[in-house]
């Protein structure tokens, strides 16, 4: 690998390069991330999708500073996640990231009211907890009416919106959400996602959502697909001049030129083991090797 290829792209808000995470067990090693690359710009709203076991949650744990990668580069808001000290890590969790889990119950302490839950991060960080800020956040997320209720007295959607308020409480730069709508029906999902998008637009927070929910993944500007511990595809959406949403799926090309073909593409043309590439004027053609053999 030449030095030029390892040069990080400095202006990305979230930058992962060749990220590896290995869980060692008795006799077996589970490689959860095997060289994952990811670039997310400041203020982006990105969905990460992928089949279960593809490494989505591991990625999110690494990004949230709760887990430590085995190798590679992971940088969020200019902080190197691999070389952080305990103090850095604490600062990182207090001021840089906010986290939302899938289970509504895990996001909130069940015996505190919504307002107290929102105030918790500030209190934990040793800052003066301001009630107005909490109320503003709850207002912003449309759950101001639940301020004095316990999580048990709220619906799932309300709980998740309070959870978003909690995640936003310390004015983080990045919000990481692990299947935030996983336990909700479609209508409530819509509300929760709208809340996340609102936070993204109004507060300029970078939002990374890990999701299975097509409702979510189809509404973000960019969807990153992960397969077998690697980023495999990206879907970009833009609104056409006529107002239609145009989604274009891209394969991810890493810095050494590796490319992961979508599985259904490979299936359709029965591509196996090797393909033939041909450089044309404005594109590269990919042909199944066996077809070529027949042609010859």
């Amino acid at each position: 690998m030449s030095p030029s290829l390892t040069e990080p792209v400095v202006d990305a808000h979230i930058f992962c390069d060749n990220l590896v995470r290995i869980f060692k067990t008795e006799g077996v090693e589970v490689v959860a991330l095997q060289g994952l690359d990811l670039l997310i710009d400041r203020g982006e709203l990105v969905a990460v999708v992928g089949p279960s076991g593809s490494g989505k949650s591991t990625l999110l744990n690494v990004l949230s500073g709760l887990d430590l990668p085995t190798a590679g580069v992971a940088r969020v808001a200019g902080m190197d996640l691999l070389s952080m000290t305990g103090k850095d890590r604490l600062h990182y969790r207090r001021s840089i990231v906010g986290f939302i889990w899938q289970q509504t119950a895990r996001n909130l302490l069940p015996y505190l009211t919504a307002r107290e839950n929102v105030l918790l991060p500030a209190r934990l960080a040793g800052r003066k907890a301001r009630g107005e800020r909490a109320d503003e956040l709850l207002e912003l997320l449309g759950v101001a009416g639940c301020a004095d209720r316990m999580p048990g007295e709220m619906s799932g959607g309300q709980q998740q919106r309070v959870a978003i308020a909690v995640a936003l409480a310390n004015r983080p730069e990045v919000i990481l959400a692990d299947e935030p709508t996983g336990e909700l029906d479609s209508e409530t999902s819509e509300e929760v996602f709208a809340a996340l998008r609102g936070a993204n637009r109004e507060l300029g927070v970078t939002v990374v959502i890990v999701t299975h929910d097509p409702l979510v993944s189809e509404q973000v500007d960019r969807t990153v697909g992960i397969r077998d511990g690697r980023t495999s595809s990206e879907t970009l959406r833009r609104t056409s001049d006529e107002g239609d949403v145009i989604a274009e799926e891209y394969a991810v090309l890493d810095r050494v030129g590796r490319l992961q073909l979508p599985r259904d593409f490979m299936g359709a043309l029965r591509m196996e083991r090797r393909v033939r590439l041909e450089l044309e004027r404005d594109h590269i053609g990919v042909w199944p090797a066996n077809q070529e053999d027949e042609d010859e």
Partner: peptide
């Protein structure tokens, strides 16, 4: 103690 090196709840304890 953080970070949680090399442990995961769903795998049995190491040697």
């Amino acid at each position: 103690r953080e970070p949680l090196r090399d442990t995961r709840d769903d795998v049995v304890a190491r040697r």
